[in-house]
Structure formats: C-alpha cells, structure tokens
Design a protein around this nucleic acid. Structure first.
Length: 120
DNA sequence: AGCGTGACTCCGA
DNA sequence: GTCGGAGCCACGC
C-alpha cells in the first residue's frame, strides 16, 4: 500500500474532496487547498490534480477553484472557451475580464471554514 | 535518462 | 510598491 501508492495518492483524491466541499456560489484557491493538505508551496500539484479531475467519475466543481488573485487561470483548460465563467456566473458570481468580482467576499478557505467547524 | 514546462505561491531585493 | 527568483512535484518530450 505505502509503496503501492504512485499516481493515485490520497493527495489527488483529497483535492477532489475539498473542491467538492466548496459551497455553491463560493470559490477557493489552489494555495488554500494545498495549504489545507499540508503542501502550501505545492499549489501546482493542485492544478495538476484538477486537470485530472475530468477523469473522476464524480464531477468536480473545478470552476470554483481559481488562483489567489481571483483570476480564472484554469479557464483555458475547460472544454468551452468561457465554460468556467459561465458556471461561475450561474452561481451568482460575477466575472470580469477573467477575474472574480469581489473575490475576497466569495472566497471560501478550507483552512478557515473546515477548521472552524472542526474546532467548533 | 535528462530537461523543460505548468490550472501557483511566497519571499526577498 | 514593483520586479524577479526560488520552491514544489509530476508529466511530456
């Protein structure tokens, strides 16, 4: 098991789990997820994980994950040209020039929300 | 087998 | 306050 783990580590799965925990109408960042997983500086891996999210049987709201600036950097990886923006807009999130408007207000940090729930 | 790139972020100058 | 470099890990060529 320990040595058997190679590509399907819990890391990827955890990224999907956390991403699915993002409430409707909220967004999070790669860094927030990475930090929650204990890999603050491995935000890129979160991106790779989300890239493979399409391989997952269960749909992953990857459109709710943006970079720390609120830019839809991963938008180009979606099937459509503006699929990500459309999905966000459908959730009441306003997107302007590939950037989430009032990003700080819609920002959902697992390190805060999940930990808060746990501590509560 | 090695090098470069990437859905990022943080730190230092 | 702005700019540049380093870190992280996996994948593709």
């Amino acid at each position: 098991m320990s040595q058997t783990s190679r590509n399907n580590d819990n890391f990827f799965e955890r990224v999907y789990q956390v991403t699915r925990l993002v409430p409707f109408g909220r967004v999070t960042t790669y860094g927030a997820i990475a930090r929650y997983l204990g890999a603050t500086r491995s935000a890129r891996m979160v991106g790779w994980a989300l890239n493979s999210s399409s391989s997952q049987e269960e749909w992953v709201p990857a459109h709710r994950v943006v970079n720390r600036k609120g830019l839809l950097t991963g938008k180009i990886h979606f099937p459509g040209s503006n699929t990500m923006q459309q999905l966000l807009k459908a959730e009441g999130i306003r997107v302007e020039d590939n950037a989430v408007v009032d990003f700080d207000m819609h920002f959902w940090d697992p390190n805060v929300e999940l930990v808060k729930e746990s501590k509560k």
